[in-house]
Computed example of a mutant assay.
Amino acid sequence: MIVIVDYECGNIASVLNMIRKAGGDATVSGSHEVIQQASKLILPGVGAYDQGMSHLHAKQLPAILQARAAAGVPLLGICLGMQLLGLGSEEGKIPGLGLIAARFKRFVFNADSAMRIPHVGWNTVYAKKINRLISDDQEEKRYYFDHSYYAVCAHEEDILATTEYGHGFPSAYSRESVYGVQFHPEKSHRFGLSLIKQFLDI
């Protein structure tokens, strides 16, 4: 059973629709009992970092998500969900779930730079190594982004893919059964559909 974690901070309907389009079936729930039964978990997310962590704590979800990840249940964090998997963010003060050794920093550009914050729109994602989400073939892969903070990983081997926006940053990472993507696969048409199918096959 695939469970989309409902903590009142995600565009859950879009994620659910993409899973169904990929041939999967998912349940939306914030229930501990349902999450305990999940064969896969998806942590979506839209909004501010501390708000997201506060909502997880309000539903007493951090410990159960950490336990399920430790048990080897595949967990995919999307956008804010990816950030919550890390250690913390400059955007807030509440520690993250700590499932990936990464901290999030705000993009900073010179006043005369053409780069704007947030980073919004389509951008190319380059696979850094063979992984279960993004195939390492020759086709250019583009996904939809909407974020102001980016990951700084403590361990280079956790980085699955990178993207350029003023400088390179990790746009996907993983450790053991935990995966995070900074972009929105549910808004990324055929590339997003392919990624969701890949996750369903893990």
Rank of each mutant, 00 (worst) to 15 (best):
G180D: 09
S174R: 13
S89E: 01
E176N: 14
F191A: 12
H32E: 02
V28G: 14
S14F: 13
V108Q: 06
G180H: 08
P118R: 00
I4S: 11
T27C: 06
L61R: 06
M1S: 12
H32V: 05
K128T: 12
E90C: 05
P74V: 01
K21T: 15
A38I: 07
A70M: 02
K105F: 12
S174K: 02
W122I: 03
S113N: 06
I159Q: 08
G86P: 00
E33D: 12
Y150Q: 11
P44H: 03
S31I: 05
K59F: 13
I94M: 13
A63F: 10
K93A: 14
R190G: 12
L41K: 01
T27I: 13
M1W: 00
H57D: 12
L80N: 05
I159Y: 06
S29E: 04
A101M: 11
G23D: 09
H155Y: 12
R132H: 06
C79S: 00
F145R: 03
F191Q: 15
K187M: 09
F169A: 12
P74M: 04
V73N: 03
F183N: 01
K59L: 15
G168F: 14
G96F: 06
Y144Q: 04
D137Y: 06
S31V: 08
Q182G: 06
E140I: 14
G77V: 09
G88F: 01
N11S: 03
I42W: 08
D137R: 10
G23V: 11
R103A: 11
I78S: 09
H147K: 05
A69I: 08
G98R: 08
Y173M: 15
G23P: 10
G166S: 04
L99E: 01
L97F: 10
H184P: 04
K129E: 08
I4D: 13
G168P: 13
A63Y: 05
N11P: 03
D201F: 03
I117V: 14
A38W: 03
N110H: 12
S194Q: 09
A22K: 01
F191W: 13
